[in-house]
Amino acid sequence: MSIQHFRVALIPFFAAFCLPVFAHPETLVKVKDAEDQLGARVGYIELDLNSGKILESFRPEERFPMMSTFKVLLCGAVLSRVDAGQEQLGRRIHYSQNDLVEYSPVTEKHLTDGMTVRELCSAAITMSDNTAANLLLTTIGGPKELTAFLHNMGDHVTRLDRWEPELNEAIPNDERDTTMPAAMATTLRKLLTGELLTLASRQQLIDWMEADKVAGPLLRSALPAGWFIADKSGAGERGSRGIIAALGPDGKPSRIVVIYTTGSQATMDERNRQIAEIGASLIKHW
């Protein structure tokens, strides 16, 4: 067993022997301040990774656009098919120029040779490549099948209805392509620590998230040296922004954090800054 596999296998073990965790309302004060600064709703939840206990939450059962955070769930569904012998990570998928959609920095470079399922998941999570996500959605049967996968996990809230990039439209009061912070946090925890996926697939999923290259201005910008984070960000229309993450000190994750916002007129930089400040408060009061 590799060191990384050992780390993920012992996530519940280490967490069980940690000192009790206590909620700190100071972080919620910052979440509410972010709402004021952005002029928009902000949803927040913080779960203990081992027990699933909610440590703090704000608007945990209000719907927010998922945006690209759905790509972690998508690759979880792909990995479940791999575990069941219905898919192979090494299978190569070929596609054409007509398949390319807006923001496809990886797939646009491989029109000639195609990409493997493993490479597509890596591109979808680490670079948020939209064509990679659409190609992977095709392998599982489309958005409705991802929703069905989530329902089978016990998540009857999260739903995907459309493809990239239309799913980022974020129309107010439109339930399409949305989740709730509580539902997303619980589902992410199941994917990373539950028995739904094999140990190898859980490790692969967290490795992809740990290698995320496009979430630097968010929670990662607030992390002290030595902290662990595996995350996936999302951005959408109407001032929408979000991030889902597993993080913790001492090089291992111990909490799940989900943050979503929508309806702001603020710039992307300002949305990023507010999420980073929430992260800084979380870490300060850990």
Rank of each mutant, 00 (worst) to 15 (best):
F228K: 03
G263T: 10
E169N: 06
L38W: 09
T116N: 11
G142H: 07
T186S: 12
G52V: 08
E237W: 13
L100W: 08
R220M: 05
G114A: 08
L146D: 01
L137F: 12
E175F: 08
G234F: 01
D113T: 05
H156F: 14
R59M: 14
K213R: 04
G141L: 10
E164G: 01
D212M: 03
A124P: 01
R176A: 05
S281G: 11
R118P: 14
L136E: 01
E62K: 04
Q274Y: 04
G43K: 00
A123M: 13
D83G: 08
A266Q: 04
I229M: 14
G242F: 01
K71W: 00
E26W: 15
S122I: 09
L55P: 02
S51V: 08
A280V: 13
A182E: 08
L74M: 11
P181L: 03
I283R: 14
P143E: 07
L199I: 11
L191V: 15
A230G: 13
Y103Q: 08
G85N: 07
G248Q: 02
I93F: 15
A280L: 11
I278W: 02
L135Y: 08
V117T: 09
G52L: 09
M67R: 01
M180S: 13
L120G: 02
V101W: 04
A200M: 08
Q86F: 15
N98I: 05
W163K: 08
A215H: 15
M184F: 08
L74K: 01
A200F: 13
I243K: 01
V157N: 04
E210Q: 13
G279S: 06
S281P: 10
Q265A: 10
T126F: 03
V157C: 05
E277V: 13
H151T: 05
R91Y: 12
T147D: 05
P143N: 07
R241C: 15
L205A: 05
E62M: 04
A185D: 00
K213V: 04
M67D: 13
D212L: 03
A132K: 00
E102L: 06
H156K: 14
F228H: 11
S68Q: 00
S201F: 10
P181Q: 01
L192D: 01
P65T: 12
D269W: 15
E119R: 13
I93Y: 06
G43V: 01
I93L: 10
A276N: 10
M153C: 05
T116Q: 07
M209Y: 01
W163I: 09
A132V: 01
R176N: 12
A185T: 04
I229W: 02
G236A: 10
N173I: 07
D174H: 07
S254F: 15
R63G: 07
R81G: 05
I93V: 12
K213A: 04
T69E: 02
S128M: 00
H156S: 11
V29D: 09
D129C: 01
A276M: 04
Q204R: 04
T261R: 06
R241D: 02
S104N: 02
A245K: 00
A225G: 08
N152Q: 13
L282Y: 04
E102F: 04
G114H: 09
W163M: 12
M184G: 02
K284V: 12
V78L: 09
S254I: 14
G251T: 10
P217I: 05
E237T: 13
A245W: 01
G142D: 14
A245T: 08
T139C: 15
R63F: 06
V31A: 08
T147R: 06
A211Y: 15
I259K: 00
F58I: 07
S221M: 12
T158L: 02
S254H: 05
S233F: 00
A148S: 06
T158E: 00
R159P: 02
Y95E: 01
T27P: 14
S57Q: 06
G85W: 10
Q86W: 13
M184Q: 05
T186F: 12
L146F: 05
V257P: 01
G142M: 03
K252M: 12
G52Q: 11
I93P: 02
H151Y: 05
S122G: 11
L120K: 00
A266H: 05
R238Y: 15
S68R: 00
H151R: 06
I206V: 10
M115V: 04
P143H: 05
R118Y: 10
G251N: 15
A245N: 02
V214F: 15
S122P: 03
S281Q: 15
Y95K: 02
A123W: 03
L28H: 13
R189Q: 15
T139F: 09
M127E: 12
P65C: 04
S281H: 08
E56D: 05
S128C: 01
E119Y: 03
R238M: 03
D33S: 04
M67E: 15
N130C: 06
P249Q: 11
L218M: 12
G141V: 10
P165V: 10
P165E: 06
T193E: 04
L49K: 11
L89I: 10
K32P: 01
M67V: 14
T261Q: 12
P105E: 09
T187C: 09
V214A: 14
A235W: 02
G154Q: 10
W286V: 03
F58S: 10
A215P: 15
T267P: 08
D83M: 07
N272F: 02
L282W: 02
G141W: 07
V72I: 04
A84D: 14
L188P: 00
W286N: 03
A170T: 03
D83H: 09
P105S: 08
G39W: 10
N134P: 01
R92P: 13
H151A: 05
T179Q: 00
A276E: 05
S96M: 10
L100S: 12
V106E: 10
L28A: 08
F70T: 07
G114D: 14
E166K: 12
R241A: 14
D269C: 13
A230H: 00
D231K: 11
H285Q: 15
Y95S: 03
N173S: 09
L135C: 06
G226W: 12
M209S: 02
L167Y: 01
S104V: 14
